[in-house]
Computed example of a mutant assay.
Amino acid sequence: MKRVYVDEKWCLGCHLCEYYCAFANSGKSSMIKALKDRKINPRIQIEGDNHISFAVSCRHCTDPICVKSCIAGALSIQAGVVRIDRDKCVGCHTCVLVCPYGAIMPADEGVMQKCELCIENAGGKPACVQGCPNKAVIYEKRA
């Protein structure tokens, strides 16, 4: 299965992937309307310092502990992608606590959010990959 990876040697730490992610998941047709004068809430986070930057996002584990731990049954695996049913999520943060990658976070509405590889967004590739000017964010299958 394809996943999102970041090549740390090419990542500039510009955070554009975060903006593209937030826009793609905003439901708005204009990036300006979606992001201007608002705190963005991306599903990928760039961490690091001046020497190295790396992305924190869902690894879509083959045996995800977050899915097993969800008390509401809101997390599931669909075609290899760990998904959150926002209607079932009760906002208990159990998935946040058990995720070893820190990839699940609260959304503005109180439920949880995480990278779902933009499977509901058009384009064939996750928005963070499409928006990376340095091609540091990669969407590929690895062994």
Rank of each mutant, 00 (worst) to 15 (best):
V137Q: 10
C132A: 11
E116N: 12
C70W: 07
Y139A: 04
Y20R: 02
V137N: 11
R43H: 10
A127Q: 09
G124C: 04
I52H: 12
G48A: 10
V90Y: 03
R59M: 13
V96Q: 12
D7F: 01
V56N: 13
C115L: 11
S57H: 13
V129N: 06
L75C: 00
E18L: 01
V90R: 09
C92I: 05
R83A: 05
I104M: 06
C115E: 13
E109A: 13
I40F: 02
K141D: 14
A136V: 03
I77W: 01
N25W: 06
L16I: 07
N25R: 12
C61A: 07
C58T: 13
R43T: 14
K36N: 05
V90W: 04
I52L: 14
C128Q: 08
V6Q: 10
K36R: 12
A103K: 13
G48M: 09
K68D: 12
S53C: 11
K125Q: 13
A72C: 03
G13C: 03
C128G: 13
D85K: 02
V4Q: 01
R86T: 08
A55P: 08
D7P: 00
D108E: 15
I32W: 07
G123H: 08
A127N: 10
F23H: 05
S53H: 15
G48R: 11
K141C: 00
R3Y: 01
A143Y: 11
C14E: 01
E120Y: 14
G102I: 10
N50Y: 12
C128M: 07
R43G: 07
I52E: 14
V6L: 11
